[in-house]
């Protein structure tokens, strides 16, 4: 261990067998996270486990801190205190370079909108994580097109995101999230900007494709019908994970 977890967090966990691994075979776990934005408390002692291959819905009213928790789990935000471990490694102690590397190789992201680069074509957008990971342009684009075909949007490959419909754009985003065969996909209201029908289609394809690749999904949503695609749910209320039920 070159890095050690914060002393406070270590002492609040009684008898951890090994501070680097999470009991119960969790792939990704949050331990007692606290995070405040100025006077606003976003997370107050939030703990959560994500297991390999499961689809976990994070539910809760708006402002409850569910998106903040997702961002902490993904290593995008750093909590004020507490730890996030991924495969036994402490995400909160990693450098930006290491966390960036995780994002492009082990994690995938699907957000409500705006995560596609408007200057690039859809195929180039999907190929982006591969290219950032050093894959050659031709190979990356080939893989990207396969994914677009799999998500039934091969026609948009050479269009820019601005020229596609919302549903198509989200499928492109799903393709981009899965193209590196990540172990965890973080999805924040992935259907939030879509109507019911398109939202259902995107969720069906997303969850099916994620299960195929064996990726775990952390799905933030306030819609029960979207959460119904999950294997289990956790509710975030007032910055705390209210409940966590294993399916």
């Amino acid at each position: 261990m070159t890095t050690s977890p914060p002393a406070a967090s270590a002492s609040t966990h009684p008898a951890p067998a090994d501070p680097g691994t999470t009991p119960g075979g969790a792939l990704l776990a949050a331990h007692d996270l606290h995070l405040a934005f100025g006077p606003t408390t976003a997370l107050a002692s939030a703990s959560l486990e994500v297991h390999p291959g499961e689809v976990l819905a994070l539910m809760g009213p708006s402002g409850s801190g569910k998106s903040t928790l997702l961002h902490c789990l993904a290593g995008i935000l750093r909590p004020d205190s507490g730890r996030v471990t991924y495969g036994g490694r402490d995400l909160t102690a990693m450098s930006d370079v290491e966390r960036s590397a995780l994002r492009r190789s082990e994690f995938g992201f699907v957000f409500q909108f705006g995560q596609l680069v408007p200057e690039l074509t859809c195929a180039e957008n999907v190929a982006l994580p591969l290219r950032l990971a050093g894959v050659g342009r031709r190979d990356a684009l080939g893989t990207a097109r396969e994914w677009l075909t799999r998500l039934e949007v091969p026609d948009v490959a050479d269009k820019r995101p601005g020229q596609t419909s919302g549903g198509q754009g989200q499928r492109v985003a799903v393709a981009r999230a899965l193209v590196t065969r990540p172990r965890v996909v973080f999805a924040d209201e992935p259907t939030g900007a879509l109507d019911s029908l398109n939202g259902e289609r995107v969720m069906q394809m997303f969850v099916a494709a994620a299960r195929d690749t064996g990726a775990a999904v952390v799905l933030v949503t306030h819609e029960a019908r979207v959460a119904a695609y999950s294997d289990r749910e956790a509710v975030v209320r007032d910055g705390r994970v209210r409940e966590q039920v294993r399916a």
């Binding site: 029960a224 119904a228 695609y229 409940e243 039920v245």
Partner: peptide, 20 residues
């Protein structure tokens, strides 16, 4: 409320599965 939600979601998962 939590118990009820869990039950509701269980049923919703079931229906979602049937739907797909």
């Amino acid at each position: 409320l939590d118990a009820q939600r869990t039950e509701h979601l269980r049923l919703m998962r079931e229906l979602t599965r049937r739907k797909s």
